[in-house]
Design a protein around this nucleic acid. Structure first.
Lengths: 325, 325
DNA sequence: ATGAAAGCGCTAACAT
DNA sequence: ATGTTAGCGCTTTCAT
């Protein structure tokens, strides 16, 4: 491994001079600079990021903590985060937590000791006391956190309202909801949005809400349960796209047709929602943009800038496709 | 930030002693150790990974370079990698390259200067000369690399043969193939497997192979082209699951039925293959396991152990579902 | 069993 | 314009 010392020696200058040409600060004579650059190239010298970090207490690294990278929602988010990070010279440490509190705490601990310059966090189990001691800036995604943490979310409540209204407009007379885990804020908000619209209608009963867990399988099962209890359901608002996919399958397996017999709408707008048969109508969140925004916000926080805004709640959008008619 | 010095001072010992109790080497009197631990806890002291790294030249970090984390194949891989890494006290830096050579080179450069202890690489553009100078161990996924790099792949050729034979057994009389980008080794092997089985049959013509690029859309388009030219195709082997999904959609859009009119089989066994309607028959690779194996192999390489094996080619498996009858 | 001090590779303040 | 040197936080000889 080549060090700055060897470069200095070969170039016949001091390490300070080499450091100056590398970082482009301080004065260096043209000729000297050229000579140094030449040697750097010749020796294939790359400064040790570790040594640099030890000096300036910046690792040029951010941590990204997610429940599950195989969930398309988080994968898209991660892509956005990585993109912005890279553009700004940062590197991303991926932390997959499975939504497990202990795992999250462990990861947090490691991120701290690796001196990451910032953390983007998507967690529904972490509480304020778990993160308050962390000196590094944190941006929360998909939920807000107590304390002074910026957050990037989208308008879950409003989206749910839009979804259900859409179903209503399409002529649905009895609309069910497959809810996400009520421990997760987005799931609660989406349920609230649903209730907001249908809670007062005469056909509404509690039996029209089935619990899911945001995974495909639960959408499948919830739908079958729902349809067993209420044969006249003609519209289903699934708490997310994954469950909507399961829902589509369940309806198909029952010999029914979407959207002729039952209209289905999801939430998230993951890529896969447009490849189902029929293509899924959904409320799309600007997932990739949320990743970009979260990262840019984090970057600002890291530079010590005041936040322009602490809480971003992005607009969602109704995407009408073939599963609602 | 608490340093080892403060701990030492508070405990009334030298930094060397603190270091000893942290790392559990060297002799430390029971009482001293307890005292030190107490102070560590009290001060909430966590050793700086950076400083440690500077000493022992190990960052406890590995780099993971992938074309696209939103591709379920790579997301699953990443999950496996992260899992094993975490278990072994390593952290994963995620590098998303979009399959772009320059991006890969940039990332490689950064990984080097961050002193990652190892790299897991999935690239089809990088060549030997791009990586030979890298001192850190590298494991290649999904392809082999010249030189002494261990690799983890699966049996693409054999899988393709299995896929096409399966179609034949199901009674297909004219089988087409949607190939992946021929710049990618796996795509070439799968095409070869297809040709191996049907190349000599009397109905085979070159027009039965359509080019795709491993993305959903290309599967859709290739299928429509294929079917336009050859109305009597009754079986399609798609080069991967994503294209198979596009294929399913195209067939559906043409008013035809899978598997009644046309049987379809994919390759990869990504999670999503089981949620399509109809569920997709496919050749499944042990994706998650490939991630585990690659990481374990890398870990061994990092410990300087001789490789038990340089090249792993894992078995694939035919999964018969509803898209082939 | 414990401490003092050198050194990991670099930056930045201070000299010259 | 360039060099010297003191750290950054830690590990690890080498003394004691």
């Amino acid at each position: 491994m080549t060090t700055i010392r060897e470069v200095a020696k070969m170039a016949g200058v001091s390490v300070a001079t080499v450091s100056r040409v590398i970082n482009g600060n301080g004065k260096v004579k043209q000729a000297t600079e050229e000579k140094v650059r030449e040697i750097i190239k010749e020796l294939n010298y790359v400064p040790s990021a570790i040594a640099v970090s030890l000096n300036n207490k910046k690792s040029k690294t951010i941590g990204l903590m997610l429940p599950d990278i195989t969930n398309p929602f988080f994968a898209e988010l991660a892509k956005g985060v990585e993109e912005v990070a890279k553009e700004n010279g940062y590197t991303v440490i991926l932390c997959n937590t499975n939504g497990d509190l202990q795992s999250e705490l462990d990861h947090l601990q490691v991120l701290e000791q690796k001196y990451v310059d910032g953390i983007i966090l998507s967690s529904h189990t972490l509480s304020y006391s778990d993160v308050e001691h962390i000196a590094t800036p944190i941006v929360s995604i998909d939920r807000t956190l107590e304390g002074n943490f910026p957050s990037v979310t989208s308008n879950n409540f409003q989206g749910a309202v839009m979804a259900v209204r859409h179903l209503l407009e399409k002529g649905c007379k009895k609309i069910a909801h497959i809810s996400g885990p009520q421990s997760i804020r987005t799931a609660r908000l989406r349920l609230q949005g649903y209730l907001e619209v249908v809670g007062d209608l005469d056909w509404y009963t509690e039996a029209l809400v089935a619990d899911g867990d945001y995974e495909i399988k639960s959408g499948y099962e919830a739908t079958r349960t729902l349809l067993q209890m209420n044969r006249d359901i003609d519209g289903i608002f699934a708490g997310n796209d994954l469950m909507a996919v399961g829902c589509l399958k369940a309806i198909h397996s029952l010999g029914l047709h979407v959207p002729r017999d039952i209209s289905v709408i999801g939430f998230d707008g993951i890529n896969f929602s447009k490849i189902t048969i029929p293509e899924l109508s959904t409320i799309s969140q600007p997932i990739y943009d949320m990743g970009l925004l979260a990262t840019n916000t984090l970057l600002k926080a890291m530079e010590g800038q005041c936040y322009e805004q602490m809480v971003y709640e992005l607009d969602v959008q109704l995407i009408e496709r073939d599963s609602t008619k």
